[in-house]
Design a protein around this nucleic acid. Structure first.
Lengths: 141, 141
DNA sequence: AATTATACTTACCAAAAAGAGAGTATGCGC
DNA sequence: GCGCATACTCTCTTTTTGGTAAGTATAATT
């Protein structure tokens, strides 16, 4: 596989300009790492938490849990821990009882939200077209 | 959750301009569908196939399989079928022996590649920063 | 007549991910 | 002293995912 090198120079230039990035990598080792990273970060719960935090600024653990429908405590803890590890959020513990822990996006986390913005817009823009395609696929033959 | 509404007007305007999109959705039902769609499409194999096809234009089944290291026949078939269903690729069967099937991206597939471009660039741009953050996280305490 | 090539499908099995639910610590109000 | 609230952690079970291997069809090749 060839990293972002498979997309047009215009696409790359656009995206680079958007994020103020130098020249693209083509090293296969970096490619693998980048793909792993995207797999990690393009996860459902990560994206939802990213959205919530971007909207609200600072949030407590259970506040995020309440905001995101269907997330279990386990996945919330797990996802937040991974995001913290990756440097996407900061975790601030207040040594009070009952416990209080606040989460907020780092600059890196915000930049990821911005990068994903294009995909969100794409999904909204083409949602109906895709559903129509599925419908057609499922009822054909 | 509030869809793309959690990002700044500038971010949205940028992305909309990029993809020529009308106003953003805030309907929770659409939100759910959009998130499902992103979950579907932000999959590891889907992204790798997208990259390969964008680079090569047209490819046969086994050609894609050879190009993508580690993919099993099962996952290749499965992913291509889902991509076809979503309208991201076209599948052309030539009734010859041995069988010949060609895949190529649709305009929709290409637009998805373009949308993901920002995330790829983000990942390459911040890969080292993230690895440093993980390192720090893992060795702290 | 056996082998090769291609693009699958199906069945089976192992591993990984995720959900459910209980347990923990502790200061506060009642 | 009891229960509540918070932010977890731990264990158990279920679900999902993915890999492996075998089967299919047939024309050309050896």
């Amino acid at each position: 596989m060839a990293g972002i090198s498979s997309f047009t120079r215009e696409q790359i230039a656009e995206a680079e300009h958007h994020l103020d990035t130098p020249s693209p990598e083509t090293d296969p080792k970096v490619d693998r790492l980048v793909n792993e990273l995207i797999g990690r970060v393009a996860d459902k719960w990560t994206m939802l938490i990213l959205e919530e935090l971007n909207e609200k600024g600072v949030m407590r653990f259970s506040e995020i849990g309440r905001a995101i429908e269907g997330i279990s405590q386990k996945m919330l803890t797990q996802t937040l821990r991974l995001m913290e590890r990756d440097g996407l959020v900061t975790r601030t513990v207040y040594p009070v009882v009952p416990p209080k822990v606040e989460y907020r996006l780092t600059a890196l986390g915000e930049s990821l939200g911005a990068a994903f913005c294009g995909v969100w817009v794409w999904a909204e823009r083409y949602l109906e077209e895709i559903e129509a395609s599925r419908e057609a696929f499922d009822t054909r033959d």
